[in-house]
Each structure stands twice: as C-alpha cells, then as structure tokens.
C-alpha cells in the first residue's frame, strides 16, 4: 500500500520541482520562445494515471502532464532540452515545450489542437489489433489519453471517443476538469452537472473523483486501467480540481477569484502531510526527496544550457521523410 503512495508522491514532487525551475527560467528570460505551461495542482491525477501503464501501452499526455511524462520514462533533461529548443531534444528545436513525445515507444507528441489525440490513440489500438499485437485476451495493451474540460468540447474529442466506444477498445480517457478553458470558466463551456454524465452517452463506464486527493486518483486510475486491460472497453475518469497556475507562465490568472482558490488544495502539499501522518515518510526523508529532485533538475538544466541551439544553415528544411521526394 505505502509503496505506491510514496512512488506517487515522488512523481508529483519530481514534476513540481522541474516545473518550478522552468517557471523561474521563463521569468528570467531563459526560455527562447513560447511559454511554460504548469501542471500545478494536477500532478497527482497525471502521475497516478501514467503509473498504471506498462511498456507496450499507448500514452497521450496533454499540456499539464509533466508528472505522467516523467513516470513514463521522460527525464527532466528531455523536458528542459525541448523547452530550450536544443538540438539534443527530441524535437531538435523544431517544436517546443509541451509538443514532445516518444512516438516509437507509444508516447504521442501532442499537437495544440485539443482532442486530436483521442482518435489517434483509438487508431493505434485498432492498429495493434490488425497486427495481432493487441495483447492476450484479458491482458490487453491499453491506450490512455488526457483531456481537459476545455478539450471535452471539441468535435475531435467526440469523434475519437465515439470510435473508441464503437470499437470497444481498451481505452482510458482521463478528464481533468480544472474548471478553466484558458480564462473561461466551465459555466460557459458545458451545461451538464458533471462531465462524467457524458460517459453514458458514449456507452462507456465513467467515474467522477476528487482530483485533489492523490489516493482517490490512484484508486480510480488503477481500476479503470485494469478494466480496460481486462477487455471491459473504454473507461472515463473525471477528476475535479482547480488549475493552480495561469494557462501558461505568460498568464497571471488574475481572473480566478481568491475565494475559489481557497477552496482547492494543492495536492503536493496536502499529500506530504498525509504521508508523514501515516508514517510513509518522515521529515528528513521528505526533505531528502525534494533535495534529490532539485539537484537532478539543476544538473539537467546545466547540461542542457551547455548544449547547442539549432543552426539554421544545418537544417535540411524538408518536411518529407521520403528522400527521393524531398
């Protein structure tokens, strides 16, 4: 029991430390372009979901999934390299910040158009079926995709999720309802009481949880992934929480009332208190953990900053992989 709780907390802290460093780097002008998008307040759900996956599964993270990405094997160095646009990063400076992934390993590189990855994960799982690589019955390869309350309103989400349901795929949709589409509150973006009500409309199983409670996140994600893996078809989890940051570092989120913010806990802080009370870690162990990740991030940043930026003269400037046509 406590093993996974400690691992979950570690993943949350690791993401928080990395993102805090990227945020300060943004403020000091150290990010060459774009913004830095923080998952503050969303680490628990992201990490808990990704921790249920294994090699061969498909993962489609979104904007606020630093924790899940790290769980899946990305390193802070990988993340920093892409934010800095380094040639050593997986996008080689051609794309930045959150638009990174490891598609060969089943970790998609998102595009900015929300909902686009839902049908893509469904297609990946259909492809595995075609290739006879879907896994043994009852032990299927799972596809897990993130979406927010904002992305839930795109046509792409609807089409992709409906296809996943029609095909009865081992698909898990993790919906983070952080109450905000950029600056617009959800009273202007959906009219049902909870987004989980939509699950029935697609013919899939849905559960609603408190996204600020890491243990609730863990239990729901473990159950949903297990059901998908067992062949019960697509699952939806709706985690209610509050985005504890702006849309990106360029946004001070001054439109979020203080009263609302006071009602939503920061899972990283509260979970540390809970785990210490439960004896999962003591003060010294907690401090050592934060220190470990601060050192890790500092070393990664120092390394990435010493690495080269792309040289436009070395760029082949072709968008086709077929050399004869490039």
């Amino acid at each position: 029991m406590s093993d996974h709780r400690l691992a979950l907390f570690r993943a949350m802290v690791r993401a928080r430390v990395l993102e805090d460093r990227l945020a300060s780097l943004y403020l000091s002008g150290g990010i060459p372009g774009g913004s830095v998008f923080l998952s503050r307040g969303q680490e628990a759900f992201s990490a808990a979901a990704a921790m249920q996956l294994r090699p061969g599964d498909v993962y489609a993270p979104l904007i606020r999934d630093q924790a899940g990405r790290l769980v899946r094997g990305e390193t802070p160095l990988d993340a920093i390299r892409v934010h800095l646009g380094r040639t050593t990063g997986v996008t080689r400076g051609r794309d930045g910040n959150i638009h990174r992934g490891f598609p060969r390993q089943g970790d998609l590189a998102m595009i900015s158009h929300l909902g686009s990855t839902i049908g893509t994960v469904a297609g990946w799982l259909m492809g595995l079926r075609q290739l006879g690589k879907a896994g043994a019955p009852g032990d299927l390869a799972v596809g897990l995709a993130s979406i927010g309350d904002g992305g839930m309103n795109t046509g792409a989400l609807h089409e992709g999720l409906n296809i996943a349901a029609v095909e009865k795929l081992p698909f898990v949709l993790c919906v983070t309802d952080n109450q905000l589409s950029y600056s617009t509150f959800s009273d202007r973006t959906y009219a049902c009481r909870s987004l989980v009500e939509r699950a029935a409309g697609y013919g899939l199983r849905g559960v609603a949880i408190d996204g600020t409670d890491p243990d609730a996140c863990w239990a729901a994600c473990r159950d949903a992934v297990a059901r998908a893996r067992a062949g019960e078809g697509p699952q939806m989890i709706v985690a209610k929480l509050l985005r504890l940051a702006g849309h990106g570092m360029h946004d001070d989120a001054s439109y979020v009332p203080a009263e609302l913010k006071s009602r939503f806990a920061d899972g990283v802080q509260t979970y540390e208190v809970v785990l210490r009370k439960d004896g999962v870690l003591d003060e010294a162990a907690a401090q050592a953990l934060w220190d470990e990740y601060r050192s890790e991030t500092a070393a990664a940043l120092a390394q990435a900053q010493a690495e080269p930026s792309p040289d436009p003269a070395q760029e082949p400037w072709t968008a086709l992989s077929t050399r004869a046509l490039a």
Partner: peptide, 20 residues
C-alpha cells in the same frame, strides 16, 4: 467508420504510428 472524418483521419494516423 461512423460519419466522423476527423476521427477517421485520426485513426489513420494512430494506426500508422502503431506500424500499420
């Protein structure tokens, strides 16, 4: 497929990435 052109194309992309 359903009448879902965006979804159809997304399926094509995902299946292609899976090796199809």
């Amino acid at each position: 497929s359903p009448i879902s052109e965006d979804g159809q194309a997304a399926v094509g992309i995902g299946a292609a990435l899976a090796g199809c």
